[in-house]
């Protein structure tokens, strides 16, 4: 499939996902009135529902998905491991410990966000400090350090769940499975997305070469260590921004880059922007399904990303070259 055609299709998917998100919800609004609200001509309840509830939620979902998909693609090439996803280095684990710790202490939403952010950033810093050696950053040491810390965080999360009162466990499980129902302030995630997208594009040409291995990349003029450090912090902070907004939404960061590669997109100058569009569109659609399938009850979106993603990837796998 020509890349320009695929790019156009992904732009349509992204726009379509936002429209679908504005169209569906627990309150039924006819298509014409949703159009009217989007065009600014419908005031009142319809306009409020579309502009104050559904679109902020769609914006949050889109930013989260775009961040996770790009971070996944970046980490897969940094770690030279196709199984890498944004959470492989323990960032979501650190955020979960912080968030669940705050929940257990009975703190409010702001403290919970601060706990999640603190936990994520602490893991980013600890993994870097433990694995980095100037002049020789062994990527396998980085991966192992991250995996070990993620396992430690997993144990702490289990402990917190065990200690939590029964009434609080459901909220914790929602957070762990990924949940956008509390995500009403997507602006920081969009700022992170803009930064990650710009940096990713700046890295993209060199990332193509880094896929040949660090030594070969050096012989082709890539300053490997600064690139690796840049990619690590860009992907990590992008992941942290997504986790702060929507918890540990799984599968997007693993599925989306591979789906695009299976469609023949391997050049990171195309892959990263396409990851943003497909990841954002995919999570927006999944989130719309999460809040409408069992309405008024909301499902954790992380469950739906896996339920929608697994068959999609299994369908694409036989197409792989």
């Amino acid at each position: 499939m020509p890349r320009s055609f695929l790019l156009a299709a992904l732009v349509l998917l992204a726009l379509g996902s936002v429209f679908v998100s504005a169209l569906f919800g627990s309150v039924e609004i006819p298509v014409g009135r949703v159009w009217g609200a989007l065009a600014g001509s419908a005031a009142g309840v319809d306009g409020d529902i579309v502009w104050k509830l559904r679109l902020p939620r769609a914006a949050a979902a889109f930013a989260c998905g775009a961040l996770l998909a790009q971070a996944g693609a970046l980490l897969q090439v940094l770690l030279r491991n196709p199984l890498a996803d944004p959470y492989v280095l323990g960032i979501s684990g650190g955020a979960a410990v912080g968030a669940l710790g705050a929940m257990l202490a009975g703190a409010g939403a702001v403290a919970m966000g601060a706990g999640a952010g603190g936990g994520a950033l602490a893991v980013v810093g600890i993994v870097f400090l433990l694995s980095f050696r100037a002049g020789d950053w062994n990527i396998y040491r980085l991966l192992l350090t991250g995996v070990v810390l993620a396992a430690g965080c997993g144990a702490l999360v289990s402990l917190l769940l065990t200690l939590a009162p029964e009434a609080g466990v459901k909220g914790m499980l929602f957070w762990l499975m990924g949940d956008l129902s509390q995500a009403q302030a997507p602006l920081p995630a969009w700022i992170a997305l803009a930064a990650l997208s710009a940096l990713g594009l700046a890295f993209a040409g060199s990332l193509n070469v880094l896929a040949l291995g660090p030594l070969k990349a050096r012989t082709l003029g890539v300053a490997v260590l600064p690139l690796q450090v840049g990619v690590y912090f860009t992907a990590s902070l992008g992941t942290a921004a997504a986790v702060l907004l929507g918890g540990s939404i799984g599968f997007v960061g693993l599925l989306v880059p591979h789906a695009l590669r299976l469609l023949g997109v391997t050049d990171h100058r195309w892959l990263l922007p396409m990851c943003a569009l497909l990841g954002g569109g995919f999570l927006t659609l999944a989130d719309t399904a999460a809040r409408t399938l069992w309405a008024p009850q909301q499902l954790p979106v992380g469950v739906l990303t896996a339920l929608m993603g697994v068959p999609l990837l299994l369908l694409l796998l036989p197409r792989g070259r």
Binding site: S206, N208, G213, L215, K216, T219, L220, D267, R321
Partner: peptide, 30 residues
């Protein structure tokens, strides 16, 4: 340096997912 000096390594342990043409074009990176 890469424009002046080229290196054929004994091993290339990378994971390149693209086509042969895309691979050879990486030689133009410098």
């Amino acid at each position: 340096l890469a424009r002046e000096l080229g290196f054929l390594l004994q091993d290339e342990p990378g994971a390149f997912w693209g086509s042969l043409q895309e691979y050879v074009l990486l030689g133009r990176h410098p």
